[in-house]
Nucleic acid binder design. Structure first.
Lengths: 198, 198, 198, 198
DNA sequence: CATGAATGAGTGTTCATTCAT
DNA sequence: GATGAATGAACACTCATTCAT
């Protein structure tokens, strides 16, 4: 699945130099923030000199952009797959919630955090570019919530609900411990109660 | 009301030099982030030279700490007042939501965003100090949610619900436009539907 | 004379920090070229740290611009004074030659060299600005040469002659030794033979 | 003519890799200066990677040295040919002027500018080497001017006049437009009036 | 209290050069 | 020969902080 996305060029091979750099960047950007992470930190993390970074990316901001872009591409692809397997409106919303939680809390979670919290570090034209990708991703959400609303399961406008959920889910990165008592699936079910009337 | 808090020393007089600095700092930290805000920016905002800042605060981080501390003190006080006027569990939760939204979105509320998003810019010992104040604030929330739960109005554990709400409400700073169609009170009602079964 | 120009704000007081910096910059830019001169060189030359340079000028290029601007302002003023004391066309041209040689070979000579040879290191908008000052300076030359031409003393178009002279005079910095056999006045007389038929 | 010089090894075949590199280097060094021209620029210009340059030349400075050396060799050869065809002292000086202008302003002449303006970018020992070649070139000038002086056509010492001419002619690169109203031959005639009494 | 010149460690970035493939 | 990833020293510039005035 992931292999296929790599082959299609959607995401960079995590074994390649560029791929390892993106992974390290996502981790460090999340841990310390984009501004506080120096290119020397980045380079040290993958064992090269700081100057060598610029052989792969033109600037530090370019690395941030790449992290964000790959993340959103990957998660859009994963959400599409999950949606296909869902049966009903409730199932679709739950699938999206679980997907987003996985991307926030799982392996690619660092990058997802970056996407959410380092937005203003991007230059306007980079923002525009990411924004287009983001719109595609968000449309999957809005469609699923609209369907649930049509079925009478949602109390408020989908676009408002989606924004509440964006905040609620992204914030989990600040408190949820994957190795604690609550499984990710349970967390997803709890989150579902915010959105859907039982 | 505010006057009393000033008199009690809970918050700094916004007319004083220190007070104007804190307000400016809250605004700039929110707009551009703590790292991207220079002490020159701060000084220019209140019409002094950057070197003169250090007569008021020992360091830039100290300003951040003060902004956070005052914000949380102020909001704790405001929430206490609002809670007193609420009648029932639903009214209490709504009051808290409205209060937190006001502090996030309102005129003096830039600092709340800072509290949420600039956390890691604080040194560990400053974090400890703020954390204690934060615990008091959070306890007001947990108490109100527990009351609502006891009344059968809440589906999930208060501490989980509170965390979902923290994320959902703080995120509004990224999308809600105070001068748009939706009033802040409407927004609060919508948010209430996340928490309380109708 | 110089004092008056300082008082008028035409040039920076060479005793001030900014003034000493400009003098050092002119010297180093001439010796090693603008590109090869680092801001650390500049700072070391006047005994401060490199970061402190930017307290006085916003960028390295700004220093170059200032050197050029002051030089041209100073030399325009000096030429005006010299012209007033000249009697006839021949005397005016000789006065201009002597003036330009003095500015190239004398105390402000380093800056004059910079003005001539580091032109392309300026950004386009800085070039525009200097160009306007330069036009005023050049007009003094063109007027004097036109007068000589009207008197039948000059064989070719003033604007062509002026350009030949610009090159011939500025190049003296690469070979003329002020402490050698030839005085500057003799050099000026020789240069005059290029321009004026005897 | 040129073919013969190539066959004699005086200059590098402009069709070869080294030859194309030298031509590109001359052009770029003139356009943007030696310091501002990167080896990547150079490599891109002839369609190879920057690392591959170093199979042809040991260093960037080595390329500059080669450009200068070939230029001076070529121009010395061209001047010798032109001198043979000149009849009298006036004709010889005019031939030299035309030759030098062609080398400064003509198609293959970018390198001449480099020779004049990038001198200080050379290391001292490279300077020594070029200097010897330059002396040969300059002797052709001094001989012709001495001849003209002996014929009473020149007012000042040949070595001084030559230096004025060096400056005047090299400076043309900064203002003369080959596609403007004035032909290069006219420009040469004008320049001659600087040197020779009519 | 305020100024503003100065600090000095640190930043992102550049670039000639090297070298294993 | 050519590639292209990597080097590492150098660069212009930033900025929180200090301190004599």
């Amino acid at each position: 699945m992931i292999e296929q996305l790599i082959a299609e060029g959607v995401i960079t091979d995590p074994g390649s130099a560029r791929g390892r750099l993106l992974a390290a960047a996502a981790r460090l950007f999340k841990q310390q923030g984009y501004e506080r992470t120096t290119v020397r930190d980045l380079a040290a993390e993958i064992g090269i000199q700081s100057g060598s970074l610029f052989h792969h990316y033109r600037s530090k901001e370019d690395i941030l952009r790449a992290v964000m872009e790959e993340t959103i591409q990957l998660n859009t692809a994963l959400m599409r797959i999950a949606l296909k397997q869902a049966q009903d409106p409730r199932g679709k919303v739950l699938a999206l919630i679980r997907c987003e939680l996985q991307s926030i809390l799982g392996e690619t979670g660092e990058a997802m955090s970056v996407l959410v919290y380092e937005w203003r570090s991007l230059k306007p034209d980079s923002q525009q570019h990411i924004l287009k990708l983001r719109d595609i991703y968000e449309q999957l959400w809005l469609d699923a919530l609209a369907e649930a609303r049509a079925a009478g399961m949602v109390a408020i406008e989908p676009f408002i609900l989606r924004r509440f959920l964006t905040g609620a889910l992204s914030w989990t990165t600040n408190w949820y411990k994957p190795d604690g008592d609550m499984t990710l699936d349970e967390l997803a079910e709890y989150a579902l109660t915010l959105a859907i009337k039982q």
